[in-house]
Every structure is written in C-alpha cells, then in structure tokens.
Nucleic acid binder design. Sequence first.
DNA 1: ATAATAAAAGATATTTTTGTCTTTATTTTT
DNA 2: AAAAATAAAGACAAAAATATCTTTTATTAT
Lengths: 146, 146
Amino acid sequence: MSLFSKTCEYALRAVFYIASKTADGSKVGIKEIARNVNSPEHFLGKILQDLSRKGILDSAKGPNGGFFLHPKSLKRPIADIVSAVDGDNVFTGCALGLAHCSERNPCPLHHEFKKIRNNIAKMLTATTIGQFNKELTLGKILLKEV
Amino acid sequence: MSLFSKTCEYALRAVFYIASKTADGSKVGIKEIARNVNSPEHFLGKILQDLSRKGILDSAKGPNGGFFLHPKSLKRPIADIVSAVDGDNVFTGCALGLAHCSERNPCPLHHEFKKIRNNIAKMLTATTIGQFNKELTLGKILLKEV
DNA sequence: ATAATAAAAGATATTTTTGTCTTTATTTTT
DNA sequence: AAAAATAAAGACAAAAATATCTTTTATTAT
C-alpha cells in the first residue's frame, strides 16, 4: 500500500502545480494541469472540483478561466488536502485496522506506530502548499515522470 | 489511506494470533483464527495459504490439522509478512506516487518522506512475529475489536 | 476401508477505486 | 446577441480489492 490513495496523490501533485503557476494571480486550465502532473484529465477535474467546493482552491469558468490558489491558501498545510481527500485515517488510524485501538486498548503495533503517525502528521502540517514554488519553477523537483 | 492493505492487516493480525497460540507446537484452525482476529474466514484462508506457500507459516490438513509457526519463524520480522502481501511499496514507494522519484529526481516530498519511510522500515524489521506472544496471552494487547 | 476433519482450490459475487465520455452551465470576448 | 472557452455535472465503464460459496484433496481416527 501507499500512504495516500491515488486520488490524493493526484490532488497533491495538482495543487503543487497550481500553486507554482498561479502565485502571480493567473489561472491554469485542467488540461495543462493534467498534462503536467500525469493524471487522467476528467478524473482530476472531479478531484479539483471537490477541493474547490471545500474551499482549498478556487476556479473560474469561461475564457481565461481555470483553477488558481489565493495567496493565503499557499500558506495552508498539505495536511488539509490529505484530510479533504483521504479523511483522517492517516493521522489517527490503527496500523492493523482496528477501529477501537487506543492507548487503553492497544494493538501489538500501537505504541511504535503512534510515533510514526505523529511524524507523518508533523510533516503534513509543517509543509505548506506553496513552499515548493521556487524549486518547481526551477525544475529542481518534479511532479511527473520524466 | 492506511499504511497496509486490508489483506495485510488481516495477515498480520492472524500471524500474531497463530504465533501466540502455536509456540507450544500445537496447531490452530482457520475458523478459530478468523473468529479471533475479526476477519472473513474464507478470505483469510486464502491469505494464509499464500503465506504458507511462501514459507512464512505452515499448515497441516486433516483432523487436528491447522496453521502453525515453526519456532524459527517467530524470530522473523513482520516486514516479511508485509512485503509478502503488499509488496515493497511501503519500503520504497514515493509519497506522490511517482515511479521515478529518487535522490536525483525528487518529488517535493521526497526528502522528508524518505525519513518516514525509513522509520517504518526500521520498525517493521525490528519487530518480530513472536515478540508479542506473552502480552497477547495475558490479554494486554488485542487483535480484534472488543 | 470408512468416515470425519481441515486446509486447498476454484468459481463467482460485491464493493471500492480509478477512469472515460457526454452534456450542461457559466463566463468572456467579439 | 452570438460564439468560444472553460469548469461542473452526470452517466457509465473498467479494474482492483474484498468477500462468499462450493468442491476437492490430504490426513487422521475409527
């Protein structure tokens, strides 16, 4: 398994792309986004619609329309995207899938896994949507296969 | 998402159960296992067959048959189970799902995620199949919902 | 030998995730 | 006002994961 669903992977890649392209106030269309993050266009469209409904990003119809991020949104943690798409399982779920696993009722992996979960949460709340804009523009990091 | 597939969660829970029940050389049937780890019997049966084929556990047909673990197997890391069931994505996969993500071609999360992946790998190789036997017997840790 | 037991295997079903295609609604430009 | 561009929405399809049911095979006990 992977940490995130494929849907969430697409969402994160797309949001990073949108961030790096629209920090200047412009907009970017779904076709371009999909092409640049290697994801199926219409499927990604729905994902972004959903994020748009949830207030994580914005969109405008019509000519010169597209998706974009408000400057304020660039400061948001990517944890917001992950929980919007995948829910909070990655932040709170049991490694063995037990719904009632807890401090009082631990599964075998509980104590060790808690540390890992916390590291994941820390990373996801510490990294922001906009923090890679520069490196993305410079091509130092990638959002699609080369 | 969760770290492991549901299949893998069942596998881990079942193997822990088998370990705690057969360290004395006895065997335990699929019905009892499924009941005690809250998993669908036939589905779990296939998972255990697979682990059996892969040499992680053993089984015997007929009366007094069942699944069991050789004492040696109790020393194996649970990483063996995870990679047998889920493959090695959890050990090596990119957080954003990029197949070619690497040190030279990193995705935005690569460097931070590498640390997390390493912690996960460390945990999975450090914890053994048999290490919870005592606590399981004492009921201090659980493999099913209460 | 026969009957009973239990895992192995096979066939099929359901659910969830992922993906595609078509139509509609909105906005901008001309 | 008309045309063009673009996201939104809806219907549908394919693939993968999860689950069930039935039959077969191997083993043991009687």
